[in-house]
Amino acid sequence: MLRALTATATLICAGGAWAHPEIEAALSRLNADIAARPTAAALYLERGELYARHDDAVAAEANYLRAAELAPELPRLNIARGALELAGGRPAEARRLLDPVLARTPQDIEARVLRARALAALKEPAAAVTDFNTALAATATPSPDLYLERAALLPPAAALLSIDEGIARLGPTLALQLRALALEESLGRIDAAARRITQVAAQSERKESWLKRRGDLFTRAGRFREARTSYLEALSRIADLPDWLRASPEVKQLANELHRLSNS
């Protein structure tokens, strides 16, 4: 109730307090349009989204509420409101707004991802994963972040499968490979983790730190001979670097550490 009252007061006092010219210009235009057409719900939605983009959640909500009064079924309105609620740390409210959107338009990817995040915040991982699955299947070029978000909701073995699905679609993207190799190690699959490090190293012009990482992996697994081989290989890669890079304190420090590790 207090939020609604604040929002209404904000709507009445709507005005810009930014020194940013294009925000003021956009706001001025919308204010003028709303003055000319005060019952045009889409304009309130647009003004609310402008406020939301510039982090004035109270003014954004006020405009969304006005739009909802004028046209409760306005397309995108509940998605915008759901996004605002989620950003404000109110996932249950977000879900309440997004459920009917997805009931009407189940193919809406933006709403689907927002609800997946709301469900994750509400500690409903299975439902969140279902939404992520649907969103990923419907997205032509998903970002690695979506795969990582979904994997975070799954137990290690299923998470690994989920990440590998991403790698199959996007290629051996670094962030996915890193998550996969951490999962492989947590599952005790040392050889598989080592293979992933080798794949990442193959992409990299400088391989020494990846080879050290592989050595560290073997060390943690008690496979000291293989660890030493990796450390020595890293040292050999350092020897191949151009003089100016090899002479850097960072590389010298790494080389010293590798010498120590390979002799221990």
């Binding site: 070029t141 970002s143 690695p144 972040d145 991403g166 996007l170 290629g171 051996p172 993207t173 670094l174 962030a175 996915l176 990442v200 992409q203 990299s204």
Partner: peptide, 8 residues
Amino acid sequence: GLMTGTEA
């Protein structure tokens, strides 16, 4: 550089 898997 290394692959990102995204144009972002």
